[in-house]
Amino acid sequence: MLRVSALEKRFGGLAALNDVSFSVAPGQIKSVIGPNGAGKTTLFNLIAGTLSPSAGDIHLDGVSIAGLPAAAIGAAGVARTFQQPRVFASLSILENAMLGGHRFHKGGFLACGLGLRHTRREEEKLRARAEKWLDFAGIQSIKHRNASELPLGQQRYVEIARAMATGAKLILMDEPAAGLDETETKELGEMVRAIRGTGTTVLIIDHHMDFIMSLADEVLVLNFGQWLAEGTPSQIQNSEIVIEAYLGSDDDA
């Protein structure tokens, strides 16, 4: 469903990503791993439209989305969660999730200002959609709290509910387990499987090897902006070239 071909991103003379090609099958959990500076987040920014590629192409369900504005890619069915959770802190959890479904519901400036009945019905539908995904993310009971009051771990679930409410076909998750303890990481793994269970495809960056290896259907390894290896978790775990890359980075650290 996602096909990345010969993707390249240069910042000045520096290639952050160079000739990277891979594809993701529908309903798969695919993980992107690699040492720091491997270009993982750059890859996500290119797919989501936060950055435009210098060369190469990205297809979502056969349609090229490379270089489109972020809002167009969001509307095409790509949602994301961020490395540092980025919730709308001054809004309630419910409102955060409602913004995910925002684009499906009507109501322009005039209709909303006049408080037309139609707009209010749309608002009810939007609320129902949001609540469904709050339920899914297990945060329905705290929906009226301000998103800023939540600990980081729970803000992640607000992001997930918001992303799912967009009706995304593909969710990009950038290090969702960062800062979580063992139990929380396990719960998050269950959540990611539940996302796959809805038919949504997941592309996930993470450093926690145990987490990724038990979760991913396929793993893509990047190193210094280059495609290094791709395969099932066990293939990757036993790949000498991958082990070497990681040992190398450990020496540096």
Partner: peptide, 22 residues
């Protein structure tokens, strides 16, 4: 309304709002 909600969200993070297809 939803318009007010969207604008408050934009105030906090326009790139995130864009990523939601808005």
């Amino acid at each position: 309304s939803r318009i007010g909600r969207a604008l408050r969200a934009i105030r906090e993070g326009e790139p995130i709002v864009d990523s939601l297809g808005i």
